[in-house]
Amino acid sequence: MMDGMTTAPGQLPVAHQPPRHPLDPDPAPATKARAVFALGLIGALTGLFVGGVVPATVALQLARQARREAYASGGYLTGSARLRRGERMAWTGLALAALAVVTLVVIGVVRYAEAPFGQDFSSNVD
């Protein structure tokens, strides 16, 4: 075993934090972070149907506002994890929508290239 190292049973000591000032606001969850998460989820779920572009774009705009408000609040607005997840899902929804559009364009170009050109006459016409 290791000599000289001992561990004491029980809980670890907790660092003492100074008391809060009575006029400090209580930490509150950011409502925009919840909205970003919901809109990002909708954007990710409907991204392949190209309908996810609108909620994903709104989610990214709200995320910018939520970050500014959280910074200005001095740490009293919580919900940064939910905000990050919502942003990731919004970007995923936009990527899925772009993938769907590119796929549809490629399919359309291939079908257009396979279509016959000019007028199709019957076999007995010169």
Score class of each variant (00 low, 15 high):
L77P: 00
T78S: 01
L12F: 08
P9W: 03
V110R: 14
P25F: 09
L77T: 02
L99N: 02
A30S: 15
G75Q: 06
Y71D: 15
G79C: 03
L94P: 05
A44C: 07
A28R: 14
L83M: 06
R82M: 13
A81P: 00
R64K: 13
G86Y: 09
L94E: 03
V125Y: 07
A72P: 02
L83D: 07
A30I: 01
R20K: 10
V101A: 14
G74L: 03
M1I: 01
E87L: 05
G74Y: 06
D24E: 15
Q61S: 11
Q61H: 10
G47C: 03
R34A: 15
S122P: 11
A115V: 00
G4D: 12
A56H: 02
A66S: 02
A98M: 10
T7F: 14
A72G: 08
T57C: 04
G52T: 00
D26L: 14
M5T: 14
M1P: 05
V105I: 15
R20Q: 09
D120G: 05
K32T: 08
R20Y: 00
G47H: 05
P22I: 12
R64M: 06
I42M: 07
V53R: 13
L41P: 01
G4T: 03
V50F: 02
L77R: 03
V109E: 10
G108Q: 08
P55A: 08
R88K: 14
R68A: 14
G52E: 02
F117H: 13
D3Y: 09
